[in-house]
Nucleic acid binder design. Structure first.
Lengths: 349, 349
DNA sequence: CTGAAAGCGCTTACAG
DNA sequence: CTGAAAGCGCTTACAG
């Protein structure tokens, strides 16, 4: 099959109809009421364009106007596949409203380990600004490159001095702990299985919990001090965590409530509670942070949902403001979180 | 802070150094050995470019060469936030190797419900081809638009006549069932909680299971006929599924093995088995399909991992071939799957 | 109401 | 070894 007349330009339409390129552009780019052309001319051109399968070359417009109308999302690699779809969706939604395209590029271990690696997205110009989703500290040479070229830039889901949007992990941990305190709990534990802290949320959730306890005159209680925690990789980790949870639930000084860093911490507890007939929330209140309201524990669980779609929306909106005014630092935006379903929370026995 | 000389072009560098634009382009775009310029000229230009913070305008190159060097990913909305990060990563990796950028755009319910809605990504030209991740049937007007403009296009994670890449759900379900049969199981059930079928995997996993059973002269057994299944939305669904799982595990004719559509089906079973002291895999072998080897059930679980990163890689590679030869239909590529950890599989009692 | 012209930042074939 | 020129497909200010 021959492909003829593929991708006609306004020049070809103009030639076909024996009008000028300007006339074609006018017919195609203005609304009926704003169009200075004779109505018949406009219609004729639009019909021909449709028949010829014309599509505007967005890149040529960029060329002419000097605006890319595009933002790049740079995805960090610390956890190879961590890119929350709802956050990308939130970003895209806001960008799309302003007729911005969204480009995505990924960093990977290999490349970042090269001494002065700079990703293509920073080496060439193809967008008006940069969204960054990078857990932990952004590599120095990447930061330098952004500064050097004064690229408008907003960080999503991470905590910086300015130009960032992140969920209020501190506040939510504080509030969740207070909710438990108000119900009468005094012995509340905090549970996490990570070994060392990459993402600010690891520090902030613990601190929110600790501060709420301290304010109530109580001692914070880190349920498994870091050193004893098995590495995440092994297939036996799941059994180990189940054992650890069982031991905890059977111990004399079992807390009456536990706040978990993530669902991964709560799941073995929920499972271990069943054969021990430890009722949740009757005997033990349980709260975990999570991205969505669903979970795969097979059991109900009170969750503080992270609202990453909103983080994405606000980060994109902030980037659009920075593109308009690159020299004005934007104050960090902190997305409020709340405990949405108090289904595994009740007063202590 | 004033931003001076922002985004210099080769013209500005040429003016600064009093050489021609061609000379600058030559110095910047060729390797040392291929460069016809005097070594001193080349060095002088490159240093000036660096000092001035020069970055190539990738869009201007596109303009000149007629190649966008970009692919668009169109994400369907049937399940609002379903976009597997590992698939996007796989696509981006392959595209990036060929110096392609990747653009992403999302369809949403609102827009698709408008009668003749066409997304911007199809209305304007800004990429060389299209990757589609859309569960279920692609809307007719979108298909038409793609054909009309002869846009090179590959569908990822869905089953079509041609130009698509998807995991071998049929084969994997067949094989998983055979694995159980070979261990001596005769009463093997299939469990799914979806109500109506959108994604091909819902039909194919069931069919793979059914065919394997039939081939062994056994009757397939759909554990919960569709009509009795509670809707997914309610917060009580989790409890209902736990109850249903409990009933199933207690029933006289409990199967000796169960193949689950997803981890969501296996999770309530794993939880319900604990208080009933139904040993898994001792009393019941259990296999589920899943995206990753981890799960949030808090318990070990044999998983057929979907290999969506590979789906993404192959889809991108196929798209690159289609961009080179748009008129040649590409045969569907089916990514083989296997049961990676037979941890909850054992012979029947 | 319509057209001619300039120019965005590159690449490339050709001239000298 | 270096430069002048054309042109990709648009948009826009101006001329007639």
């Amino acid at each position: 099959m021959k492909r003829r007349n593929q991708n006609p330009s306004i020049r070809q339409i103009a030639a076909e109809l024996e009008v000028s390129k300007s006339t074609v552009a006018l017919a195609l780019n203005t609304l009926e009421e704003d169009c200075p052309l004779a109505s018949a001319t406009r219609t004729k051109i639009r019909e021909a364009a449709h028949k010829m399968g014309y599509r505007t070359n967005a890149i040529a417009r960029t060329m002419r106007t000097g605006k890319f109308n595009a933002a790049s999302l740079l995805v960090g690699n610390t956890h190879p596949f961590f890119l929350p779809a709802e956050m990308v969706n939130g970003m895209e939604e806001v960008l799309e409203q302003k007729k911005y395209r969204m480009q995505i590029s990924w960093l990977n271990e290999d490349k970042l380990s090269r001494p002065n690696y700079i990703p293509d997205v920073l080496k060439e110009r193809s967008s008006d600004g940069l969204l960054i989703h990078y857990p932990g500290d952004i590599p120095e040479n990447i930061q330098q490159s952004i500064r050097r070229h004064q690229i408008p830039c907003v960080v999503a889901n991470n905590k910086l001095e300015s130009d960032c949007v992140y969920p209020d992990d501190y506040g939510a941990a504080f509030q969740a702990t207070q909710t438990l305190l108000e119900l009468g709990h005094r012995d509340i534990g905090y549970l996490h299985y990570y070994n060392n802290s990459h993402h600010y949320s690891e520090r902030d959730r613990l601190k929110g919990y600790t501060d709420a306890m301290r304010q109530a005159g109580l001692k914070a209680r880190d349920l498994f001090p870091e050193k004893t925690i098995p590495p995440l990789s092994s297939i036996h980790t799941r059994d180990q965590r189940f054992e650890m949870s069982t031991t905890l639930l059977q111990s004399q000084d079992r807390p009456t409530a536990i706040l978990c860093y993530e669902i991964a911490e709560a799941a073995p507890l929920l499972a271990a509670a069943l054969p021990l007939k430890v009722s949740i929330p009757g005997d033990l209140s349980l709260i975990a942070f999570g991205r969505i309201n669903r979970n795969d524990t097979g059991r109900p669980l009170s969750t503080v949902r992270l609202r990453l779609q909103e983080v994405g929306q606000r980060a994109a909106a902030m980037l659009l403001r920075k593109i308009d005014a690159p020299d004005i630092p934007q104050k960090p935006e902190i997305v409020p979180l709340k405990l949405e379903s108090p289904i595994t929370v009740s007063p202590p026995l």
